[in-house]
């Protein structure tokens, strides 16, 4: 524990970083500064063992075969972890990046599209779902459109899938055998009741839910120094505002 004040974004980075320990290669998609910072932090702690691909970066993107190389790398087992989000996420870890309300394709709300999710969710061993907003608008009983399914029938080639879910309120694991999320910890300043009130699906939880550990002094120092500089290359505005001091 640390009594140093920290921002919510610093906390989220420090929640994600340990989930990446031991990975050889972590990639972060577009508009993912928090996962990107967590990956860079874990790389720093890996003593040269972990590779990071930050899409949109020049320095932290080693691909030389065009935009498609990420998917080839994933399909051949060279990518351990990727991050996905969703306009809607349901209790079976189905994700929807297309739209909500109305009838597809003329949804009332239209989001950008599924991007690589329909493939990466199947082939990347550890997919971390990340969505800051934790509301019943996002965490619904059933998604309106399946961009990528949380689980697949037996017999379908699926070495990958969702393993964790990180939000502004809490950290969950996903249990693919039971097809359910399990609440692992609630972030400081929030409660299990708040998580229940703001989640539209059922999930499992232990009798006593631990509090998410606050970032320690060494982590905060690393974030506010090296990581802030490294992530600024791709996300300059984020680097200016996300970190304290």
């Amino acid at each position: 524990m640390s009594d140093i004040a920290y921002t919510t974004k610093e906390l989220l980075i420090s929640v994600i970083a340990p989930l990446l320990a031991g990975c050889r290669h972590v990639a972060c998609g577009a508009s993912s500064p928090i996962p990107g910072s967590a990956a860079l932090l874990t790389r720093m702690r890996s003593h040269g063992q972990m590779r990071v691909t930050v899409l949109g970066s020049q320095k932290n993107n080693f691909f030389t075969n065009g935009n498609g190389e990420l998917f080839d790398v994933a399909g051949t087992g060279r990518l351990d972890t990727f991050f996905l989000g969703g306009g809607q996420i349901d209790g079976q870890a189905n994700i929807n990046l297309v739209g909500a309300g109305g009838t597809y394709p003329r949804n009332d709300v239209r989001w950008p599209g599924s991007f690589g999710s329909a493939y990466l969710y199947f082939v990347v061993p550890k997919v971390i779902l990340f969505r800051e907003e934790h509301t019943r608008r996002v965490f619904v009983p059933k998604v309106d459109f399946i961009s990528a399914p949380g689980v697949s029938e037996p017999g379908i080639y699926r070495p990958g899938g969702p393993r964790h879910l990180v939000t502004n309120l809490a950290l969950f694991d996903f249990d693919p055998a039971r097809v359910r999320f399990v609440l692992k910890s609630v972030h400081p300043g929030h409660s299990v009741e708040e998580v229940l009130d703001n989640t539209g699906f059922d999930f499992d939880r232990p009798d006593v839910v631990p509090e998410t550990p606050a970032p320690d002094a060494a982590t905060l120092a690393a974030l506010r120094g090296t990581i802030r500089r490294e992530i600024a290359e791709t996300y300059p505005r984020f680097a200016e505002t996300a970190f304290a001091a």
């Binding site: 399909g75 297309v98 597809y104 394709p105 599924s114 329909a118 493939y119 990466l120 969710y121 199947f122 082939v123 459109f145 399946i146 961009s147 990528a148 399914p149 697949s152 029938e153 379908i156 080639y157």
Partner: peptide, 11 residues
């Protein structure tokens, strides 16, 4: 690979 079970495929 992938895509199976999605509403992309269904449409």
């Amino acid at each position: 690979r992938g895509i199976l079970g999605t509403d992309l495929l269904a449409n």
